[in-house]
Design a binder for these strands. Sequence first.
DNA 1: GTGTCTGCAAAGTCTTTGCACCATA
DNA 2: TATGGTGCAAAGACTTTGCAGACAC
Lengths: 167, 167
Amino acid sequence: METITNKQRKVNMPGRGMMSPGWGGKFRGCGYRMTLPRQAILNVLQKTKKHLSAEDVYMEAHKIFPHLGLTTVYRTLELLTDMGELNKFDFGDGRARYELMEISEEDHHHHLVCTKCKRIINYSDFVDEELEFLKRAEKGLSKKYNFEINNHIIQFYGVCDKCKKSK
Amino acid sequence: METITNKQRKVNMPGRGMMSPGWGGKFRGCGYRMTLPRQAILNVLQKTKKHLSAEDVYMEAHKIFPHLGLTTVYRTLELLTDMGELNKFDFGDGRARYELMEISEEDHHHHLVCTKCKRIINYSDFVDEELEFLKRAEKGLSKKYNFEINNHIIQFYGVCDKCKKSK
DNA sequence: GTGTCTGCAAAGTCTTTGCACCATA
DNA sequence: TATGGTGCAAAGACTTTGCAGACAC
């Protein structure tokens, strides 16, 4: 695993070539700056299909950029969420989980949450019918309530296969 | 507002006549007991259509039963959630919110969550189409993943009327 | 050079746990 | 009377804030 130290900062940019090109512009467009910690965090988010917690992101990004602090991770995740680039989830285990919008979009899915063992199952069945329903609902709701809908969440809660067997 | 002190405990039961009759049985059926703090908490939950936080429940129930402690509220809410009698929500403001199942059922609705001001708008439009979609999804998912679905959540996130105007 | 960003430490908030006492069935 | 249940205080977990120094543009 390559790491970046402070000495290397001016020489090597992390993930150069692995980062999709628009991020710097997106930040600057909102009046923010692209920095090395932010690049490391984005790198981590782009490379996973899991729903990482702030701590998860920190531990991974820390491998790439050891000087990183947990605070920065929280601040960056909040920033990205506010920018609409990141989805923030709650699965009821007391910590927030995140997924890049661009990843949610290319791999549209929702969640089955086991209330016993807290396991999360991604499913992408029924996505087509769902999309149709959602499209109509979003259209109607945004009109009726003058509410600009940016995102949605659908979760089913229940008891998973394993927990059903073990009880 | 009537309150119940320890002295009255053996004489007056709180909310007698206002409590739907099955609660004692539901608790006992699960090996638990019906107690005065639990009755006070249930009373509060039954009287509101809002999504109360643990603190909210505590403050209200405390008016009825002043000896109540916040810990008991948390424990009772968890118990009811595990029993499947209570819905636990997260609207992204860092505290869990609760709504009695029987109330959700008689007044089926979902939520628009404003990501700017954290306002929650209940809506019950599209519930019929939604119900149909959900029924099929639940059936299919529970079969495919052998997952026993007890509950679901649908939330739309975005910017509300007021926040759109003020930016 | 200026305004933003960062890491550290400390504080804040919500929630859970340990324990001795009390109440329900 | 035997289990649960309760309140208090303390601890725990996640997240946010204050601040001085560092960095991007």
